[in-house]
Amino acid sequence: MKKEINEQELDFSQLKDDQTLEEQVQDLKKQHLELKKSVKHKKYKRVRLSRSIAGDVILFVILFAFALFSAYPLVFAICNAFKPLDELFIFPPKLFPRHFTINNFIDLFNLMSNSRIPISRYFLNTIWITLAGTIGHVLLASLCAYPLAKHKFVGKKVLNQLIVYSLMFSTAVTSIPIYMIISGLHLLDTQWAIIIPSWGYTLGLFLMRQFMTNIPDDLLEAARIDGANEFTIFWKIVMPMVKPAWLTLIILLFQQLWGTDGGNYIFTENLKPLSYALSQIVAGGIARTGTAAAVTVIMLIIPITVFVINQSKMLETMASSGIK
């Protein structure tokens, strides 16, 4: 577009000889403006994209069918949680409760408060693990992502490759050595056994690094000229700019840590997280079907709420998630 304008500008043949220089300049300016307008007009004129109605209908029927498939089990779980026990076992089963009740939640609460260790203990454990893991990860990962994205140093390429490659294998592969390492570090049977490994979550670092590459270099350079050191730049300029990315990291890590049940690493009962306690209740058999549904709803509602609140930020981060 710019080229077009310049060529037109240079077209002096239209100009008359008897015009003064100023007039010529004025004329050129006018020409330029007009051209600019026409170009702008062209740019914003909507072209109808090729869409057939039949195609629209078929594709969106597919979309909504799968939306039903996707949502049904979750709606089913939520509805079950609000059904009285007798309604859970009627034949044929109904999706929506006829007599709405919150008894299941009350039962759950009673069960938990009667147990040897109060529910608040498990709850606090989960909150501590989730908070410590999430905050630690966001801090360490963004501190590491900043040089990886914006500094030049020996070994940068190798590190970046290493991170992309380690996205390619799941934790199942490394579970045995990790157990040995945790036991070697004397972290077994402490909550740190879950918190510290979660700080090294690779996907979080990867997303943060990708997002940080979008920060303009000029801004950082200007700060350097003003005499700011790298840590100040990181804390005062980079961190506020990558807010969407750390919200995303929080969501991703939150989802993992919220559902953790301590696995093989925690044996002491009063160190165990909520998810473990709830799974013990669910294991109680048919009589606990109602409470089990209530448990599912509790475990499900919090990650979903966190996601709903931050959806747009998360999408903003994901836009730069690509591997080049």
Binding site: L140, C144, P147, F169, T174, P177, I181, G200, E230
Partner: peptide, 19 residues
């Protein structure tokens, strides 16, 4: 700046693969 994360990354991701 990278050291803290990389130490954890090495301990819980790279070394386990080698092990």
């Amino acid at each position: 700046m990278m050291a803290p994360y990389l130490i954890i990354f090495l301990t819980f991701t790279i070394i386990p693969v080698i092990m």
